[in-house]
């Protein structure tokens, strides 16, 4: 029997974990801590690459058990079609329950990124919808895949980030967080947002996907896709709901996405990278940050902090 066992990384690397092994272990520790300390946790599943990594780490954390909490997807109804297909496949593959929540009132009122502007739309269809779901299911902890290297207000956030009964964040009054000792104590109605990928960088995420062979939405790989150019950004025409100006004729271009969200709000980049290796290579040469493709971050200075205080993930 012993000869069939794999040597530990410690044995292989002379007592030193690799960078990714260290990140992986830290994330697993955080994820387990939530399962052990909370009554009713949930994992926000956004279908993107970070969510894919978080889900993979979750499977590792509890193996051979199944993860003891469900997934929640806040569906704005404006996600790329390929994302929704991937979401349903994934939930089936990992055997976790998937809760899909949409702000029905917003839907009835016809809120869209075009009629109400990206800021109001995001507020109603994402932030409000998320708060509705958290309240409705009485979740006391919610995992998110945000990373500290993404944006400067994220760089300030704790791994266990306290939320008031109204899901608000008070950045000036965060609980001290020392070592890997997380304070999970809350009163009824309050909750904690948990960010197990806090210390990962974009490069780490891609390298880990490569190393672990983690399935991701095909939109991350370059392919010929119909796009229009708006304010210097390439927007994919994912369905016929995208209003086109007369001068706008969708063109087939070789594009891919560095980050995924609602299709009218997520810009593609021109790229020939159609394999993971090529994506990582391109990343290493990148001169713009991944969130530059997120139109909502540019609305106004400090916009992410403001959204987060109001309950955005």
């Amino acid at each position: 029997m012993p000869q069939t066992r794999l040597p530990s990384p410690a044995e292989l690397a002379g007592d030193k974990l690799t960078h990714l092994q260290r990140l992986e272990a830290e994330s697993i520790h955080i994820i387990r801590e939530v399962a052990a300390e909370f009554r009713n946790p949930v994992m926000l599943y956004s279908i993107g690459k970070d969510s894919s990594v978080m889900l993979h780490l979750t499977a590792k954390a509890f193996y051979p058990s199944k993860p003891p909490f469900p997934l929640l997807h806040v569906d704005t109804t404006w996600k790329f079609r390929e994302m929704i297909a991937f979401r349903d496949e994934t939930a089936k593959r990992v055997g976790m329950d998937l809760i899909v929540h949409t702000n029905e009132q917003g839907l009835r009122e016809g809120i869209s990124p075009f009629t109400h502007g990206s800021s109001t739309y995001t507020n109603i269809m994402k932030t409000d919808a998320l708060k509705q779901a958290l309240t409705q299911y009485k979740f006391d902890a919610a995992f998110g895949g945000a990373r500290r290297d993404e944006e400067k207000s994220r760089a300030k956030e704790r791994i266990f980030s306290f939320r008031t009964e109204n899901h608000g964040w008070d950045p000036k009054n965060q609980r001290p967080e020392l070592w890997n000792l997380y304070n999970a104590r809350i009163r009824q109605g309050e909750s904690i947002r948990v960010f197990p990928l806090s210390n990962w960088t974009e490069l780490d995420i891609w390298q880990y996907i490569l190393q672990e062979n983690i399935p991701i939405v095909p939109l991350y790989f370059a392919a010929k896709r119909p796009v229009v150019e708006r304010d210097g950004q390439l927007i994919m025409v994912d369905d016929d709901r995208l209003p086109l100006a007369k001068s706008e004729v969708p063109q087939e271009r070789m594009v891919r996405f560095r980050t995924l969200g609602c299709y009218p709000l997520t810009a593609a980049i021109e790229s020939p990278a159609s394999t993971l290796h090529e994506i990582v290579y391109e990343m290493l040469l990148a001169r713009t940050s991944e969130r530059s493709g997120r139109l909502i971050d540019h609305d106004e200075a400090g916009s992410m902090e403001k959204k987060k205080r109001e309950g955005y993930f």
Partner: peptide
């Protein structure tokens, strides 16, 4: 035990 298989050993920092 880990998701990636059984181990003979685990060192400091490993989950």
């Amino acid at each position: 035990l880990t998701y990636d298989g059984e181990r003979a050993q685990a060192g400091a920092g490993e989950a």
